[in-house]
Design a protein around this nucleic acid. Structure first.
Length: 280
DNA sequence: GCCTGTTTAGTATGTT
DNA sequence: AACATACTAAACAGGC
């Protein structure tokens, strides 16, 4: 594969799955949620490859949004006119890309249903939580006088009040020298972990997701208001801060070590329930 | 009619 | 080889 520029991938297909690309787009904006059209825009601006055959990849992308539990749909509020809903990442999907590959996840993120003996269903809890978080982020940034870029200009993480760099933050992914996917992933994860102290077993995949900087910067926005998340636990722990953060990505064949964490899982999101027996 | 969103199905490819 | 995941295509429905 040829080497693209620092921030773009020329005409070559980027070594990222649609899930990665979508997550990048979502993470690139301060609200951590984007409408479909803005996700399209982000990908097309960043990756010239996707300026062609838009019908094809956009269909795939929509399929991914609907099919994968790691994406949750957030309905627009009356004061947010526009077409379509917002899409956000599930609060607990941070370590999907366990082995550092942005092309293929090791585990599929799956929100468990009530049939999995979890807490009773509470409709759109995650969506509700994320919408609240987006509001809090906006108000916090506004209060500190932080410049908020317009949705379409895509904040690349630099102006965020947090030093936290999400794994899908564009500067964590694009602004790295391109190598073949395998080695890219490895070197990427090595450099990622360099600046972020490890906390627990969850740091294996996304060390920076669980670094102290996450707790110290992201959490106060919500904790200051005394908020509790929609999952009935303090938002702090939902925001990858607590040691008890549940490992949501569910191996198809659950391992003994991963099972105990299920008791702490948030309630399911309705989408999971509509999967027919033929789904994969 | 177009866009968005959901679902099903088939194929390709990586992992175990 | 079997399985899991990703990609693609297509059909369909609902909203504007």
């Amino acid at each position: 594969m040829p080497r693209p520029g620092r921030n773009t991938y020329s005409e070559q297909k980027p070594p990222y799955s649609y899930i990665s690309l979508t997550a990048m787009a979502i993470q690139s904006c301060p609200e951590k949620m984007l409408p479909l059209s803005d996700i399209y825009k982000f990908i097309m601006e960043r990756f010239p490859y996707y300026r062609d055959n838009t019908q094809r990849w956009q269909n795939s992308l929509r399929h991914n949004l609907s099919f994968n539990d790691c994406f949750i749909k957030i309905p627009r509020r009356p004061e947010q006119p526009g077409k379509g809903s917002f899409w956000a990442l599930h609060p607990s999907c941070g370590d999907m890309f366990e082995n550092g590959s942005f092309l293929r996840r090791r585990k599929r993120f799956k929100v468990l249903t009530s049939s999995d003996h979890l807490a009773p269903n509470k409709q759109s809890d995650a969506a509700h939580y994320l919408q609240q978080q987006a509001k809090l982020r906006l108000s916090a940034l506004a209060a500190t006088g932080t410049h908020l870029p317009q949705m379409s200009t895509y904040n690349l993480g630099v102006s965020q009040s947090s030093t936290f760099k999400h794994p899908f933050a564009i500067e964590n992914i694009i602004a790295r020298e391109y190598k073949v996917p395998g080695s890219l992933a490895f070197s990427t994860m090595q450099s990622m972990s360099a600046g972020y102290p490890l906390h627990n077993q969850l740091t294996t995949a996304w060390p920076h997701m669980y670094s102290s900087s996450v707790i110290d910067t992201a959490a106060p926005i919500s904790m200051a208001s005394g908020d509790y998340g929609a999952y009935g636990m303090p938002i702090k722990s939902l925001c990858h801060g607590g040691q008890s953060l549940p490992a949501i990505p569910v191996p198809i064949k659950p391992t003994p070590t991963s099972m105990p964490a299920f008791s702490a899982l948030p309630p399911h999101i309705p989408r999971a329930a509509r999967r027919g027996p033929g789904s994969r």
